[in-house]
């Protein structure tokens, strides 16, 4: 059964990755990143049960905490960028180039 969870996790992770690559709206990109983090958590929880060990759940817990912090800062950055550039598109923030 664990394998099922792991494959689901891999699938969600890949979909999240594609979303990061394809979407231009910074907020949606952020959501995709969250999706990838959640996929990881699913794998951790599945492994925890597989090995009969709570440490996987602990790690998943910490991931959640870090993700929360990351969301706070990331969204603040998006708001700041939007305020100055009137755009939430990641393609518009392309000044750092050749």
């Amino acid at each position: 059964m664990t394998t099922h969870y792991l494959v689901l996790s891999a699938l969600l992770f890949a979909i999240g990755g594609i979303g990061v690559l394809v979407r231009r709206n910074a907020i949606v990109v952020f959501m995709c990143v969250e999706l990838m983090l959640n996929a990881c958590n699913l794998a951790f929880v599945a492994f925890a049960r597989q090995h009969g060990n709570l440490q996987g759940q602990i790690i998943a817990f910490f991931v959640m905490v870090v993700a929360a912090a990351e969301v706070v800062v990331g969204l603040a950055i998006i708001v700041t960028i939007f305020r100055t550039r009137r755009s939430a598109s990641v393609d518009d923030a392309n000044l750092l180039k050749y």
């Binding site: 990061v20 690559l21 394809v22 231009r24 990641v90 392309n94 750092l96 180039k97 050749y98």
Partner: peptide, 17 residues
């Protein structure tokens, strides 16, 4: 090669991926 640095964060993400 400089042209590879497009400034598009999605291109960079693609190469990372």
């Amino acid at each position: 090669l400089r042209r590879v640095q497009t400034g598009f964060v999605r291109s960079y993400a693609l190469s990372i991926f």
